[in-house]
């Protein structure tokens, strides 16, 4: 068996496991954890387009989650628009906001950029908390919006069971991973990483770094907003402190950094490592040891940054490659 075949075989195997998992995991609690795992893997992969490839550290992506969640929910509640359509509209809105945020902030240096994105995100959250009606649209201020679970079904993006949500977010995750794969091998991807690592050198070679970053930001905010709609439909209750909180932005960044930003596998690995820690800690130690999962996050982050600054994907990729080499070199052994 050749190396390529083995590689695609392992990918197919992972896919089969991912699609078959709900057949084994029947408990709604664990399915819920899995859905959140994929949701965060998706969010982090979208974040990675800016935070990884473009080499900056955005800490305000919860804004786009919020925009996606609020747009589809307001349209569905007040005008009866299907959340699927609201999802796309929310994505469009997020692109506008993302570009408006990106235009001035991408000129800033490292830490200033991170602070500016925090200020934007927090400013928008405070505004949403203070607005009852935005023109004709009812946002309901700090009380948030509740989606009555009346009409379940695919058209309404609402289900009584967890399985449909699982498959939707899984498909979304696979799509965004494929997109990331193609971008990382496209001209844009190379421009982005060149601009992220050596902006002066890239500009000297004629790369329009600012424009590339804006394109990445637009894509990232669009994709993040889609996840916002999913979040709203999954939890059926949104308020500014839930979908627009800084905690989401930081958790996304944590997952990316521990998994390895700028790589394709990193965000997924990070989510696989961190999300179960977070949920299981809350289930089993939530009453006796509150905040345990955040201590683990913090320690993991510090340790990974000191010993593996490129994230945990690096040693794992090495391991995977060694595995590939070994079995591709001795094809008899695999049969």
């Amino acid at each position: 068996m050749t190396r390529e075949k083995l590689q695609s075989l392992s990918l197919v195997l992972i896919g089969v496991i991912a699609f078959g998992l709900p057949l084994l995991v029947r408990s709604p609690t664990y399915l819920h954890i899995l859905v959140l795992l994929f949701l965060y893997a998706y969010l982090t992969t979208s974040w990675n387009l800016v935070g990884g490839f473009a080499g900056v550290l955005p800490l305000g992506h919860s804004t786009f989650v919020g925009i996606g969640a609020y747009t589809s929910t307001v349209l569905a509640l007040q005008y009866g628009v299907s959340p699927w359509i609201g999802m796309i509209i929310g994505g469009g809105l997020a692109v506008i906001v993302g570009v408006l945020i990106g235009l001035p902030t991408f000129k800033m240096r490292g830490a200033y950029f991170a602070l500016a994105t925090i200020a934007f995100a927090e400013g928008i959250r405070v505004m949403v908390e203070n607005i009852e009606y935005l023109g004709p649209f009812k946002l309901n201020g700090p009380r948030g919006l509740q989606i009555p679970p009346l009409n379940t079904g695919l058209a309404n993006f609402m289900f009584a069971e967890k399985e449909p949500y699982y498959y939707i977010i899984l498909v979304m995750l696979i799509a965004v991973l494929a997109l990331t794969y193609f971008i990382s091998r496209s001209k844009l991807g190379y421009y982005l990483s060149a601009g992220g690592e050596e902006p002066e050198a890239a500009m000297a070679l004629g790369v329009n770094v600012a424009r590339c970053k804006l394109i990445a930001m637009a894509m990232s905010s669009f994709l993040t907003a889609l996840a916002g709609t999913f979040w709203a439909q999954f939890t059926l209750f949104i308020h500014p402190k839930s979908v627009m909180s800084l905690d989401i932005s930081f958790e996304i960044a944590f997952i990316a950094l521990i998994g390895g930003r700028g790589s394709i596998a990193g965000p997924v690995l990070g989510a696989i490592i961190l999300r179960p820690v977070s949920d299981l800690c809350r289930i089993y130690f939530g009453d006796k040891l509150p905040g345990l999962h955040l201590i683990i996050f913090g320690v993991l982050l510090i340790v990974v940054m000191i010993f593996q600054p490129r994230g945990l994907q690096e040693p794992l990729t090495k391991l995977y490659n060694r595995f590939l080499d070994r079995f591709a070199a001795q094809p008899d052994r695999i049969r």
Partner: peptide
């Protein structure tokens, strides 16, 4: 590790880790 970077972004990240650890340790 990052001797020649003027504004090491990794350090920002590590201080974020310290933030999470300290806050939640005191909660514990």
């Amino acid at each position: 590790a990052e001797k020649d970077v003027r504004e090491p972004i990794t350090v920002i990240i590590v201080t974020t880790g310290v933030w999470y650890v300290l806050d939640n340790l005191s909660l514990l």
